[in-house]
Every structure is written in structure tokens, then in C-alpha cells.
Design a protein around this nucleic acid. Structure first.
Length: 399
RNA sequence: GGGCGGUUGGUGGAGUAGUCAAACACACGACGCUGUAAACGUCGCGGCCGUUGGCCUUCGGGGGUGCAAAUCCCUCACCGCCCA
């Protein structure tokens, strides 16, 4: 049906970690791999060449954000997708379905709650109730989701998401799912899983004659029975791959993966949606995740947090004002190999001049993206050498 | 020598008698960011404490008027501009 396929090349003996090759019409991805989030189909302050230099293999953009542009139907060259055109780079791509935005935009922002549980809300029962109650801003029906955004009434559902994603033209697309908040009850999550399953089927049907690879999404919140139910159902459908979504506390991620993964077909790729801090990466890979996307490397780069093998540094801090060292000694990213010193990056990044500031951000982005891609390369090597567990232990010990 | 203007926190700069420890901004500090409404957000920034509050000290120095002064008067110091 489509040209995207996956091959497991090697399985780790001591864990569920595995090495794979994900092939798409726009190139191959060695897995496990980080997927960088370019919501609007681009990375601010980076040129296509810059992106290439970070060793980025795969990019995920967003249905919600590219919605309007996609439906406008701008003229494209033969065989070119909107996303490739926007990126200016011929590399493998994904799009998220927009389901997450229903939580983050219509529900989450109003209540100051994201996908990860914050202590305050979890502890304060009154606040908790008011947060749940205020979901009245969003109306979720069998058809899809009605919600308000910037004062406008909007609707997004499985069929429309598929339509938009087809127009965007990524190699891999996701089903439209119903993500829940970390505060939602079992009962609510049960309904959400049932709806997600129905929507998944409808997405599957809508995508039937399409050559894009479609990944089904497993939900179920923090509830074991729901997670398994969801994984069994989604896993039984002939999707090209599987996404694992949801919201949880940090500690629950690996528990959920252990519940879910046994029910997903071994030979299909597994993507963990929206998770990607350093420690989480190791957990995900260890549990058999092949790809995962996260805004952390790019967003934090723009905010001045830079990653090294032992810790992160917040480059805007005054203590770097005279620091002539590079971000990390021995780092082969463009920023470090060009010997851009910390004080210079700091000066640029804290500069109110937009242009200077953008240059600072560019240096930071190139470093972080390279860092995470390099980390994944090392992880792949360790799996290849049957030393993943040792590598994980060693890395996290120093970190 | 004469005239005018000024002197407030790390910086710029509000405030010109009571509601002022001092708006606002910057800097600095702390923290946060996990399928991106995010080049962003929250908090702190005179000192001390039992820190959703309280106490003390402050508006160049000294003196004065007033119930009450960063705010009015005198004087000294310094800075700026102008006239000699």
C-alpha cells in the first residue's frame, strides 16, 4: 500500500531495546531515533542546511497548526509535499493528528495544566475538581471535538484530521485520538479510550487508499486495564505503526510502556508521543520504543538550556559572562566545532536585538539537536554491541 | 565669581507634604518548560523575622519648619549646563 516499512535489525538480550530501520519514501531512519518537533514545518532560526548538520533523521509537524495552509492547497512541485516544501529539506516526516491540541489549547491552557501532572493541582482537591469541571469549554462527541480557540468556534475530528494530514503529506501520519488530562477519572478515561478506538477505525478507513503510513494511537491514561484494552484493540488493527500517547506523571511512563508494548506487533514501529527528557529516553528505548518526539531540545535551546553529557547548563546565567569555553569540550556540533564560546552565546541570547538573539538561538538549537541525535547514535551503538544496559547505567550515573 | 538644573535601589527612572520601601523598565538571582498559542513563563531583588504576615532602616550630608518631609526652607558636598 505504501512505501514505508520497518525492519527490526537486532534485539537487545537484557531488555526490550531494539535496533531498527524505518524506511520511508524520503529516506531511512535508524532507530531508536529522536524526532524533532517542527510544528509549523520549520525550525525557527535554522536553515535547511543547519538542520541537516544536526543529523536529524525525522521531523514531526502538526495538523492543527498547518491546518489552514494545508487546505489552501498551495501549488507544489510534482511529488513534493507541503511539509517538504516548508522544511526545504527532503527528509522523512510525520504529522501529529491535532488531538493533543484539544488538551493543550482548548482545555489545558485555560486550566494551567499540561500533559504532565503538576503537584499543586494533584494535591489540591478543590482546584482539581474545578479543573475537571471546566472542560465544558470543549465538547467532545462521536463526530469529533468542538472547542474554542482565540474566540473562534472550531471543530476537529478523525476524518478532517486525516484530510488535513493528507494535504500536508508527511510520510507517517497519526490517528486522531482523545487524550485525557492527568486528573481525569477512570470512568472518563474509559470513555476516552472507547472513543479513541472508534476514531482510530474511522481514520483507518479514511486513509485506505492513501499512500501515507498511518500509526494508531494507544490511550488509557494511567489505568492498567484501559491501557491493555486500548493496546489490544489498536494493536490488532493493521496499522503501519503505533503511537503511545497520554498524560501521566513522570514515573508512570515506563510502567505504562510495560503494560502496553506486549500487545503491539513486534515487527511494527512504536512511537512514544511527546516524551523525551534524557532519563525518559533511556526508559523508552529500554521498553522497546523505536521513535519519540519531544519539544524539549528545541524549546529549551531557545530558552537557553544547553545539554552536555554530564548536566545541562543555563547559558543565560551571569556566571557565563566571561566563560570562554565551548558549550561542551569535544562536542562535534556546529556550534562547538566552530568554537563559539559560552560568553558569546550568552551575549547573543540575552541581546534584545532580534537578529542577534536569533543567532544566539541558532547556536543553541544546533547544539541541542546535535546532542540528542548523538545520544541516540550512542544508544544505537550500545544496542549493536549488546551493551545498552551498561551504557544506560553509565550515562545516567554521570549525568 | 554669578545663574539655573539635578543628586531616589545594582542601573535607568517614577514619585514633589500623609494611602511610599519606592511605579515601570533593565540587570542580576532562583525555578520551570515533555505529541510547541512557548526567542517563553513564574518568583525574588534595602535589612531582619515566627515570611499568604510583621518589624526596622532609608530617598547625597547636616540643620530647620510642620501633627506629618524623598517632597517645603537653610546650608555643605558633588555633578551638569549657561554667563563672566
Amino acid at each position: 500500500m505504501n512505501e514505508t516499512c520497518f525492519k527490526v535489525l537486532k534485539k537487545d538480550k537484557k531488555s526490550k531495546a531494539r535496533l531498527g530501520l524505518l524506511s520511508t519514501p524520503h529516506g531511512n531512519i535508524q532507530t531508536p531515533s529522536y524526532v524533532f518537533v517542527g510544528t509549523y514545518g520549520k525550525f525557527r532560526h535554522l536553515t535547511p542546511r543547519d538542520i541537516k548538520r544536526t543529523k536529524t533523521q525525522l521531523v514531526i509537524a502538526n495538523t492543527f497548526h498547518l491546518w489552514e495552509e494545508a487546505l489552501q492547497g498551495l501549488p507544489l512541485q510534482q511529488g513534493q509535499s507541503l511539509l517538504i516544501k516548508k522544511l526545504g529539506l527532503n527528509i522523512p516526516t510525520m504529522t501529529d493528528s491535532g488531538g493533543f491540541q484539544v488538551l493543550s489549547l482548548a482545555f489545558g491552557d485555560k486550566n494551567k495544566i499540561g500533559k504532565f501532572m503538576t503537584k499543586n493541582i494533584a494535591v489540591d482537591n478543590r482546584l482539581r475538581k474545578s479543573v475537571i469541571h471546566s472542560r465544558k469549554n470543549v465538547k467532545i462527541t462521536q463526530k469529533g471535538v468542538y472547542f474554542n480557540f482565540k474566540g473562534q468556534k472550531m471543530f476537529l475530528g478523525p476524518e478532517l484530521s486525516m484530510k488535513i494530514q493528507k494535504k500536508i503529506g508527511a510520510d507517517i501520519i497519526f490517528t486522531f485520538d482523545h487524550i485525557t488530562s492527568p486528573l481525569d477519572s477512570f470512568k472518563y478515561n474509559k470513555k476516552a479510550v472507547e472513543l479513541t478506538n472508534k476514531w482510530a477505525l474511522r481514520c483507518f478507513r479514511t486513509n485506505k487508499n492513501n499512500n501515507q503510513a498511518l500509526f494508531g494511537i494507544v490511550q488509557g491514561g494511567i489505568y492498567k486495564s484501559l491501557r491493555i484494552k486500548s493496546a489490544k484493540f489498536i494493536g490488532s488493527l493493521p496499522f503501519d505503526g503505533f503511537g503511545i500517547g497520554g498524560s501521566y506523571t513522570k514515573k508512570q511512563i515506563s510502567k505504562i510502556l510495560k503494560w502496553v508494548i506486549p500487545y503491539l506487533p513486534e515487527e511494527k514501529p512504536r512511537h512514544l508521543l511527546g516524551v523525551g527528557k534524557v532519563a525518559d529516553i533511556f526508559e523508552a528505548v529500554q521498553n522497546g520504543i523505536d521513535t519519540f518526539d519531544c519539544v524539549i531540545p528545541t524549546r529549551e535551546a531557545r530558552h537557553g538550556r544547553l545539554y552536555t553529557k554530564t548536566r545541562h547548563i543555563d547559558i543565560r546565567k551571569g556566571k557565563y559572562i566571561k566563560d570562554k569555553k565551548v558549550i561542551e569540550k569535544g562536542c562535534a556540533c556546529q556550534t562547538c566545532s566552530n568554537k563559539i564560546p559560552r560568553f558569546k552565546i550568552r551575549k547573543l541570547l540575552t541581546n534584545e536585538d532580534r537578529k542577534q538573539n536569533a543567532t544566539g538561538q541558532r547556536y543553541c538549537l544546533m547544539h541541542n539537536m546535535w546532542f540528542f541525535n548523538n545520544l541516540l547514535e550512542e544508544i544505537r551503538e550500545s544496542i549493536q554491541k549488546d551493551k545498552f544496559t551498561e551504557f544506560k547505567k553509565k550515562f545516567l550515573k554521570n549525568y
